[in-house]
């Protein structure tokens, strides 16, 4: 049964990918890319990667599509026909693919429990993390504690990317001259949409907080929560107008938040050093090792969530305000 679902999803993925290569309308290509993300999220669920599926669904289908559409809004939405036949490209791609397929012959079969990958560090994470770290969700304990260094660096990358987008496009605060009621970006004619958005927004934010603080016990965590929170802000901006959103979440506030998240993460590591442990070794933070780990993971995930939220929202602002400038 699992195999059947697997094959169906993979077939759909192939069809979507081929459609993306053929289609000339960039708007359709972006939408198909969103569908591709959603299908791969389903595939991740069938392969037991619930956390990854959650992230892919929130990021790939939500934020990535919105950012691509915003970029399309700033440029052309139709692709020109290439003047030459890309036969050489096809040849290169086929050769690379053949080499890669040849390479997979040495890989262990799909789902094989005796594969080397399952016997190096993974058993330790699965067997010991409950005693050493605490959370029942192994992904959280690896992400925040065992591999805290990786996650710190990745948070910094997201922060840097957010800053780069703002540096490239710049956000102009136009609130000075214009009053909120004349904001043209607000969807004035769509009363139903506006009412439903207002109705749902508190619940979207509440759900983001649930994902943030429930990440220890189920799928979720800082990355997903930050992205969901950012989508809430984007919905607010799309339906109720950019100026109103800018009033609720000013750019300066978001910049401070993005920085504060990274500082909170790094600061947790430094606090561990001050208490006599290693960098990002949370065991020394509390009375017992487990309590320390619990506190450390809580702070670190909060830092990640805040940074991701602020960076994603800043990126959206940068794209959405460019048109006016």
């Amino acid at each position: 049964m699992e195999l059947f679902i697997d094959i169906t999803l993979l077939t759909f993925l192939c069809i979507t990918a081929l459609a993306i290569t053929v289609i000339r309308k960039l708007f359709c290509a972006v939408m198909l890319a969103g569908i591709f993300s959603l299908l791969s999220a389903c595939l991740f669920v069938s392969m037991d990667a619930v956390d990854v599926a959650f992230t892919e669904a929130a990021v790939g289908t939500g934020i990535a599509t919105v950012l691509m559409l915003a970029a399309l809004n700033l440029s052309h939405s139709r692709e020109k026909c290439p003047p030459y036949q890309p036969l050489l490209a096809l040849l290169v791609v086929c050769t690379t693919g053949a080499v890669l397929v040849y390479g997979t012959m040495d890989l262990p079969a799909f789902g094989d429990a005796t594969a080397p990958i399952h016997h190096h560090v993974a058993p330790r994470y699965i067997e010991q993390s409950q005693q050493e770290i605490g959370p029942p969700n192994f992904v959280t304990s690896i992400l925040a504690s065992y591999r805290g260094y990786d996650t710190l660096a990745e948070t910094v990358v997201i922060f840097t990317a957010g800053l780069s987008v703002v540096a490239l496009l710049g956000i102009r605060d136009r609130r000075g001259g214009q009053s909120i009621t004349t904001d043209r970006s607000a969807m004035k004619g769509y009363l139903v949409l506006r009412v439903v958005t207002k109705l749902l927004l508190p619940f979207i934010f509440l759900f983001a907080l649930y994902v943030q603080f429930h990440g220890d016990y189920g799928p979720g965590g800082g990355f997903q929560a930050g992205v969901i929170f950012a989508s809430g802000v984007i919905i607010h901006s799309l339906t109720l107008g950019r100026d109103r959103t800018l009033k609720a979440f000013p750019q300066r506030f978001l910049t401070i938040l993005a920085t504060a998240g990274v500082l909170l993460y790094g600061g947790t590591g430094l606090a561990a050093m001050v208490r006599g442990g290693n960098f990002l070794d949370y065991s020394v933070l509390g009375a017992t090792a487990l309590a320390g780990q619990h506190l450390g993971i809580f702070l670190v995930e909060l830092g990640v969530g805040v940074t991701v939220f602020a960076s994603m929202t800043l990126m959206y602002y940068a794209f959405s305000y460019r048109k006016e400038a």
């Binding site: 990854v52 992230t55 990021v59 990535a64 691509m68 992400l143 990317a161 990355f223």
Partner: peptide, 11 residues
């Protein structure tokens, strides 16, 4: 999980 979020940021 982290690669996905970093991927969208770089995109």
């Amino acid at each position: 999980l982290t690669a996905i979020v970093v991927g969208v940021a770089t995109t």
